Simulated assay, not measured.
Amino acid sequence: MSAPHVSLIIPTQRRLEGLTTAVRSTFRQQGIEASSLELVVVDNDVQPSAQATVEALAAEAPFPVIYVHEPEPGVANARNAAMAKARGAFIAFLDDDEEAPEGWLAALLAAQKQFEADVVFGPVRGRAPAEIARHRGYLEWFFSRVGPAEAQLLDHYYGCGDSLLKRSSLPDPVAPFSAIRNHIGGEDDLLFGAMKDRGSRFAWAPEAWVWEDPVPARLTLDYTIRRAFAYGQGPSSACAIQHDRLGIARWMLIGLAQAAVYGAVALAQRLIGSERYAFTLDRAARGLGKTLWWGPFKIHFYGLRPAT
C-alpha cells in the first residue's frame, strides 16, 4: 500500500462527542482524493476510552483510520505518538473540539503549494451555545483565531489546531514536540519558534477555517482568564529557554505595566457594568503572565490523570 499524501491527526482525551464531530468532518473533505489520505486518532487517556468510538467511526471512513493509544499523559506525548504512526508527507492537525467544513483541507494544501510553505494556518471560529448569555461575545472571541483576509506569507505563527505541516521541514519528523510542555501547553509554540529561527516559511489560508465548540467547562471566565495568564507567560518563558536575561526582564516590565493599566480599566468597567470588562481583564491577565512566568505560577492544562 502506497503512503498517503496527507495524514490527518486528531488528539483526544475523554471528549467522545466532540471527537465524533471532528472525525466525521474529515470524512466529508472535498477537492482531494480519499486515497491520498489517512486519519490518525491518538487517545491520551490512561484507559483506551476512545477506542470503541474510533473503531465504529472507521467503518464509515473513505480512507484508513488508525487508532493510537498513548497512556502517558501530556499534549506533546499525544502529538508525538500520532506522528510516529502517521505516514503522510504532510500532517494536518485538527482538535477534538473542532469541525472542518468540506473545503478545509483543500484550502490548506492550496496555500502550501502557492507559497511553498513549511506550515500553513487557518482561521478558527469559536462557537458558544445559545444558552450562554454572559460574556458570550468575549468567549467566542477567545476561542477564535483571526488573521488576514487574504492568503499570504506570515512573519509569525499560530497554534497547532487547524494547521498543515510539511513533514520534511520539521526538525524531527517523528517526534517534533517537546515534552517539557506536556502539561502546560505551548509545545507547538516551541516547535514553530524553532522553525522560524531556521528560516521556515509560514502561510495563512483564510478559506481553511474551522468551527471550535469548547466543552461547557471551558466557557467560563475562570477558565479563559487562567488560560490568558498562561498565554502571557509564553514570551518570558521562551526567553528563559534561550537564556536571554535581558529579554526576560523586558517582557516582565512590559507585563507589569499591562497588568497595572488594564487591571485598573477592567475594575472600572466592571463597576459600571461594561460589556468590555472581560476583554480588558483578559489583557490584564496576559500582562501578569509575562511577569509571573516561572515554576510556581505555571498552570497545568494538559496531561492530568482522571480522579480515581
Rank of each mutant, 00 (worst) to 15 (best):
M1F: 09
S2D: 14
T12A: 08
R14E: 02
R14F: 05
T21I: 03
A22F: 04
A22S: 15
R24V: 03
G31I: 10
L39G: 09
V41Q: 11
D45G: 13
Q47M: 11
A50Y: 00
T53V: 13
A56D: 13
L57H: 12
E60L: 11
P62S: 05
Y67L: 14
N77Q: 13
R79N: 11
N80G: 07
A81R: 10
A82H: 11
R87P: 11
G88C: 09
G88K: 07
I91S: 10
F93E: 08
D96N: 13
E98S: 15
E98D: 15
A100I: 08
G103D: 03
G103I: 03
A106S: 13
A107T: 08
A110G: 09
K113D: 13
E116S: 15
A117V: 03
D118I: 02
V124D: 02
R127I: 02
A128C: 12
H135L: 04
L139P: 08
W141T: 07
P148A: 15
P148K: 10
L154A: 13
L154F: 11
G159Q: 03
C160S: 10
C160K: 06
K166T: 13
P176N: 05
P176I: 00
A179C: 04
R181V: 02
L190K: 03
K196A: 14
K196F: 06
D197P: 10
G199K: 10
S200D: 11
W204A: 12
E207Y: 01
A208Q: 03
E212M: 06
P214R: 01
V215C: 10
R218N: 07
L219M: 05
D222A: 15
Y223L: 00
Y223M: 09
Y231K: 14
S236R: 02
S236V: 00
C239S: 07
A240E: 13
Q242P: 08
D244V: 08
L246R: 01
L256K: 12
A257C: 11
V265K: 14
L271N: 04
I272T: 09
S274M: 12
E275L: 11
R276N: 05
R283Q: 12
A284P: 00
A285H: 08
G287N: 05
G287A: 09
G287D: 01
K290I: 01
L292F: 10
L292V: 02
W293H: 14
W293M: 04
P296Y: 03
P296M: 04
F297M: 12
K298G: 04
K298C: 06
I299V: 15
I299W: 00
H300C: 06
F301N: 10
G303W: 00
